[in-house]
Amino acid sequence: MSRMKKRKMVKWSLLAGVTLLLTACGSGEATNKDSVYELSFNIQVPSTHKFHTEVVEPWAKLVEEETEGKVKVNIYNSGALGTLSTAYEDIQGGVYDIGYVSPSLHPDTELFPLSIGDLPFGISDPFDSTAVLKPFMEKYMAESLEEVIPVGISGTDSYQLYSEDPVETIHDVKNKKIIASGYQRVDLIELWGGVPVSLGLEEIYTSLDRNTVNQATYTSIGAVGLKLYEVSPYLTKIDMGNTALLFLMNKNSFKSLPADLQKLFEDELGPKFETMNSELYSSASENAINEFDKAVSEDGGRVITLSEKDLQSFKEPAKVVWDDWVKLANDKGFDGQEMMDFFTKTLEEEGLTLPY
């Protein structure tokens, strides 16, 4: 599939994200003050993060311009209205109007099927996340979501490994405390012989700075946004896969908007937001790695590229995680093997390969 087609597909994902912005914080409907609809958009990163500066903030300005001031998007940084671990419940309950969720953080909800998108060394590019997960979602989750409107599905850039000491072989992670999000990455780190630690994004920097953890898995764009180069001078380029991002809007919030504004968000503003998000995470990751390298090189830090043999030693345990996903899906009442077959077939159609 061409990159242009992928971008068109990605537009579907962000459509939801834009729609979410229209809801009022904590009300379950868009706040209307003097004919201006105020929408709360909760994001987990600080105002210095590229997701804020290059996606959310310019998009909020675009919303105000395109609606001629009828809609104002209020951005809440650093999880001010709720953490990523409670995002799904918060959006359902109208704590805020628009937000995004990582399905792997909600394995006991109806979002579980989408956690397949976070399987290690599976999907690394957000355009691929849309191309692979949109048909998967339509096939297995078309009628399972309640109180929310899916506005789109995309992803982050790929996760790398950040450390206080160089990581050049799998032996360098043995018995190390490693920050990880999503149960698949947690399981993988245990298979490596490491000790996974689950923390919120807002705790990554502090934990590395205080040496309460030794290493962290995080995206290259996110690492620069959090300035991890200040506390973790080594980046091992491992490309262990990205995090699927499902953009959601509280259903009541969307329905409370006038019909013309709903249509504007669906036809123009939503797709624009999705495109901005996917283009950021697809194109800027290498620049972020270079920026990290430049920031740490003067103090002896560096970006480490593994040999194919050493990289494969990190990849091989992923097969256990993929097999365990099928078993867990079966335990939850799904046909796990059928879902996996559909997923891997779509991966192959998109030109992606399995890690094992």
Score class of each variant (00 low, 15 high):
residue 140 Y to S: 10
residue 326 V to Y: 09
residue 39 L to Y: 05
residue 28 G to F: 07
residue 72 K to R: 15
residue 344 T to L: 13
residue 65 E to K: 14
residue 52 H to P: 00
residue 196 P to I: 12
residue 43 I to L: 12
residue 297 S to Q: 05
residue 204 I to Q: 06
residue 238 I to C: 03
residue 194 G to W: 08
residue 44 Q to D: 12
residue 155 G to D: 08
residue 226 L to C: 03
residue 58 P to A: 11
residue 273 F to H: 13
residue 79 G to F: 09
residue 103 P to E: 06
residue 160 Q to S: 02
residue 261 L to E: 07
residue 306 L to Q: 02
residue 206 T to L: 13
residue 195 V to E: 14
residue 268 E to Y: 10
residue 291 E to W: 00
residue 163 S to H: 00
residue 103 P to I: 01
residue 14 L to I: 09
residue 325 W to K: 08
residue 172 D to R: 06
residue 182 G to V: 00
residue 178 I to S: 00
residue 323 D to N: 15
residue 23 T to H: 09
residue 230 E to F: 10
residue 284 A to Q: 05
residue 154 S to K: 00
residue 103 P to W: 01
residue 191 L to T: 00
residue 248 L to Q: 02
residue 16 A to E: 04
residue 199 L to M: 13
residue 148 V to E: 02
residue 352 L to N: 04
residue 80 A to I: 05
residue 291 E to Y: 02
residue 248 L to A: 01
residue 311 L to A: 10
residue 198 S to T: 06
residue 136 F to T: 02
residue 272 K to G: 03
residue 239 D to Y: 04
residue 111 L to D: 03
residue 265 F to D: 08
residue 309 K to S: 12
residue 36 V to Y: 02
residue 269 L to F: 09
residue 94 G to E: 02
residue 204 I to T: 15
residue 187 D to E: 15
residue 233 P to M: 14
residue 161 L to G: 12
residue 89 E to I: 07
residue 157 D to H: 06
residue 27 S to V: 09
residue 325 W to D: 08
residue 76 Y to Q: 11
residue 22 L to M: 14
residue 220 S to T: 01
residue 197 V to R: 00
residue 267 D to T: 07
residue 262 Q to D: 07
residue 26 G to F: 06
residue 268 E to G: 00
residue 355 P to E: 09
residue 132 V to E: 10
residue 297 S to I: 01
residue 265 F to Y: 12
residue 314 F to I: 01
residue 9 M to K: 11
residue 346 T to C: 05
residue 105 L to H: 06
residue 94 G to D: 09
residue 337 Q to V: 09
residue 109 T to R: 10
residue 326 V to C: 11
residue 69 G to Q: 00
residue 269 L to K: 04
residue 115 S to V: 01
residue 52 H to E: 11
residue 17 G to V: 08
residue 77 N to T: 13
residue 132 V to I: 15
residue 113 P to S: 05
residue 185 R to A: 10
residue 54 E to Q: 11
residue 93 G to A: 11
residue 8 K to E: 14
residue 325 W to N: 09
residue 115 S to D: 13
residue 66 E to Q: 15
residue 289 I to N: 01
residue 115 S to N: 05
residue 261 L to I: 15
residue 305 T to M: 11
residue 115 S to M: 13
residue 95 V to I: 14
residue 255 K to I: 04
residue 342 F to L: 11
residue 336 G to W: 04
residue 180 A to E: 04
residue 70 K to H: 12
residue 133 L to G: 10
residue 171 H to Q: 13
